[in-house]
Design a protein around this nucleic acid. Structure first.
Lengths: 212, 212
DNA sequence: TGAGCTGTTCTTGTATACATCATCTGTCCC
DNA sequence: GGGACAGATGATGTATACAAGAACAGCTCA
């Protein structure tokens, strides 16, 4: 049986990650109780968990704010990815399942612009997902999973899903092909420059729309 | 005003980190209520936070277990440190405050075997603490702080504080001296081998006492 | 004697009542 | 008319009552 706490956590997190609850929004427990259909206790436990993951900020006696995505925060996310993802590929690339890579490659080739946001998100994540799932270190797994949730928010507010899908797909495809021929160093290098480009483009998108 | 939730969290975490609540121990909320002097609510919130940090495991309708320190877990901790600490030194070594390094150096030179556990722990952490505090990335800061808490548990159960202080101090001293002359690459290299040695010794200690 | 059932007990899960504090608003006094 | 104080309001913080489930002990029956 799934606990109400877990249910509340999942729902709220989903809403934050998809920016239905936008960065800077104020939530309150009463409204969430209504929306999720539980008492305050599970809501509070969920919020407490989300606070620790830096998705919300609970301000005593005032309310709950969805964390803002500042340029600093986004820079930190990219810094983490640049530092860890290529290393993970170098170190554990060999344990990425071939069938996973093949599947990912197929999906990337089948991209069409009519896909909805959810499908685009999934496609954009599928390679990175494969990579971190291959990492046996429990800490890296947990941390990178969290970083990807933040990354999804970044994609949404920067409008990447509308503009950069083709370029991203192409980079992902090239990386996947390297991995398929077991060239992990090459894949790591490609991944690094892909991330740098992605960071660049994201920041230029954000500056255009005037992020904090 | 400090909240009871925070107070409960701090006390329980301190007890876990110092192994007063040993790995594998079962806690329960009633006992913690007594010990901390609050109702269940703050206790539960604290435990929920600690669960997310992997310090305890809450088993529905059964109880709360202090996380075990398996060899796998300890290996993961060292893997994280080996991957991140030298990189942090290379990248942000220049922002470590000189006076902090001088102070740390002085304290390392003043080590005497009569120090109690708390003082030893602090001494053993002071250089690493300086390093991660110099890192401006909020994620690395948070993660490494957490890793150090785990590390403290590892030190306690492996008996390092009794056996390896002199060797550790010497390594730390050499690293600090590199940092003081701004040789960040050299410091990173020393740090890496220090960590490898430390890992080696920890595992041999653990195998002797028969860790899970 | 042993296996299985049953009731008690002890655990966490959830709901809710009350406490506390910050903020806003309206009124009163100057 | 404007500023200060008081009370209302609404948020989270905390305590507690009740629900639900798991484990265990003890009893019964074969």
């Amino acid at each position: 049986m799934i606990s109400l706490k877990r249910k509340a956590y999942d729902i709220i997190k989903e809403n934050i990650v998809t920016c239905r609850y936008a960065p800077g929004d104020f939530l309150n427990e009463a409204q969430l109780m209504e929306e999720i259909g539980t008492s305050r206790t599970p809501i509070r436990e969920a919020l407490s968990k989300l606070e620790q993951e830096r998705f919300v900020r609970i301000v005593s006696k005032k309310g709950v704010m969805v964390s803002e995505l500042t340029l600093k925060e986004i820079g930190d996310v990219y810094q983490v990815r640049l530092m860890l993802e290529p290393q993970i590929v170098r170190q554990w690339g060999a344990s990425i399942p071939i069938e996973g890579l093949e599947d990912c490659r197929k999906r990337l080739l089948n991209y069409c612009p009519e896909m909805d946001m959810r499908q685009r998100n999934e496609l954009d994540d599928c390679l990175h997902r494969l990579i971190i799932d291959s990492c046996p270190n429990i800490y890296f797994q947990q941390w990178m999973t969290h970083i990807y949730c933040q990354n999804q928010r970044i994609r949404v507010i920067s409008g990447q899903l509308d503009q950069l899908m083709e370029e991203n797909n192409e980079s992902h495809l090239r990386i996947a092909e390297r991995l398929l021929i077991s060239d992990y160093q090459g894949a790591a290098d490609l991944l690094y420059s892909h991330l740098e480009q992605s960071k660049e483009k994201t920041f230029s998108c954000l500056l255009k729309i005037g992020a904090p």
